[in-house]
Design a protein around this nucleic acid. Sequence first.
RNA 1: GGCUCUAUCGUCUAGAGGCCUAGGACGCCGCCCUCUCACGGCGGAAACAGCGGUUCGAAUCCGCUUAGGGCUACCA
Length: 495
Amino acid sequence: MVGVRVRFAPSPTGYLHIGGARTALFNFLFARHNGGTFVLRIEDTDETRTLEGAVERICEGLRWLGITWDEGPQVGGRYGPYFQTQRTEIYQRALAEAVDRGVAYPCYCTPEELAASRERQQRAGRAPRYEGTCRNLTSEQRAQREAEGRKAVLRLKVPQEGALEVEDAIRGKVRFELATLDDFIIQKSNGMPTYNFAVVVDDHAMEITHVIRGEEHLSNAPKQALVYRALGYELPIFAHVPMILAPDRTKLSKRHGATAVEEYREMGILPEALRNYLLLLGFTPGDERELLDLEEMVALFDLSKVNKNPAIYDDKKLVWMNSRYLSRLPVERIFAEVRPWLEAAGLWAPDQQPDQQLFRQLDLARERAHTLPELVEAMRYFLSDDYPFNEKGVRKVLAHPEVAERLEQCADRIEMLDVFTAEKIEQTYRQLADELGLPARDLIHPTRVAVTGTTVGPSLFHLLEALGREPTVARLRRVAQQLRAQPSLLSKSDT
RNA sequence: GGCUCUAUCGUCUAGAGGCCUAGGACGCCGCCCUCUCACGGCGGAAACAGCGGUUCGAAUCCGCUUAGGGCUACCA
C-alpha cells in the first residue's frame, strides 16, 4: 500500500512562475502533512518549447523556496525516469494497449483538413469538434491511406452520450457532457503522446494519489478521466487550485512586472517571505496567524482550506512580509542573505568575517528595511565613511552657525567616556545639553546627520555604540571642520 | 460562440441560515510611544455584484443576470 504521492509537473519552457511555485508549495505541504512523497516530473514532450537550462532554473527556484522533492531530477527515485522525453517506451506501451482495447484509432486527416473543418463549423455557428472522419475506417481504407503515405495520429474514441463527473477536492463534483468532447488526439504524428495522455500514463505509473494543480487544468480533467477509464486505471483525487491573477484581473504575465521566482530573489525578497506570501494566496491557516514558518505550514495544510476563487496578486503585502522576516530571522541568517549584496556594493570584502559589532549594526538596520537593497543602504554608513548626505537634513539641522562647535563638544565628551556604551553616551549627551541650556535633541539631531548623513535611523545612542567610538569622533570632527570651511560642501552629495 | 470555474473592504481573506450594527491582515488616514525613522499600541475610512426565490430569518441555500478567469491545438 502506497501512501500519499503527489507531483509537480512543470514544462521546462523558462523560469519558475510564481503560480507554479505556489502549486508546487501546496503539493509539497500536502505531501509533508500526510507523510507522503512529493515527486517532481518534467513535462518536456514538446521539444519546440523546451528551453535550455530551464530545468535547472526551476529546480533552483524550488530549492531556494525550501521546496524539496523526494523523487525527480537531481535526486532520482524508483519511479523514474522523471523526464517525459525519457519515458517514450512507457507511452508506446500504453498507446498500443489503447489500440488493443479498441479505445483508440488512427486518424489520417492532415492539419490542413482539420483546420478547414474547424473553420467550416465555426462559420456554421457550431462549436468546432473533430468530425469523426477516420473513426470508422475499414482496414482496407486504412491500408489505402497508409499507401498514400499519410501520417497517422491516434485518437481516443470518446463516447458521444452521457455525462462524466469529476470529483474535485476543492470544488466538489464537476459535471461535463460527453457530447461536448470530441475524439481528441493522444499520439501526435511524430509519435509522441499528447499532454492529456502522457500525464495520465505517468500519474498512473508513478502511483500518484492526488493531482493538485492549477485551475487551468480543470477543463482537461474530463479528457484525462476518459483516458483513465479507457486504460482501466484507477482515478486519482483531483484538486484544482485557483489561479493567481494580475491586478488587472488578467493572467499574470511579464508585462505586469515580476512573475518569476528568481526575479523576487533579485529584488531582495527573502525566500521565507515569498513562500509565506504564496501560501496565503489561496489558503487560509484557520486562525489569525499570518506569519508562518515551514513547520507550521506543514502542520496546518489541508486541501479543504484552499480557496476556490482566484487571487489577485499584489506585492505590497509581500514587501511588508519581507520586512517582518528581515527583522525576525536570526541575524546570522540575514547576514548570509545580504552578504552578496554588500559585496556587490563594495561594502564588504569577500574574505571579510563578520563579528559581534557587525551583527549589532545589522540588528539596528534591519528593523527599517523592507528589502535587501534597502538593508544595504541602511548599513552603508556603518561600513563606509563614504555615505551620502541628505540635502534637506543638512539644511535643517547642520547648516547653522552654532552646530560646528556643538559637534566638537560632543566629540570631546565622547572621547572622555570611560566606556563607549549607549547608556553612557546618552548620559553625557543629556548632561552636555543641560550645561548648554539646550534640549537634548539639539545635540542629537546634528550628531545623527553628521555621522550618518540622514535624519532617519535607529535610536542615536545605540547607533553610535554600534558604529564605534573612533568613527563617531572622526566623523563629528570632520563634519564640524567642513561646516566651518564651507557649509555647502555637505549638501553636494545628496540622496 | 460552446463547455466550465469563480464572485465579501483597493488587495489577501474570516464567514459553512440567526453569534454579522460582517471579523482579521496589507495598504491608506489620524493619535500615542519617542532623539528622527521604523517597530509596537490605539482609533478611522473602506465590502456581502444585481435581481428574483426558499425560509419566521440569508453574506451564507436555489435560479437568473452581470462580471472576471480557464479550456476549446498533432502546447503543456
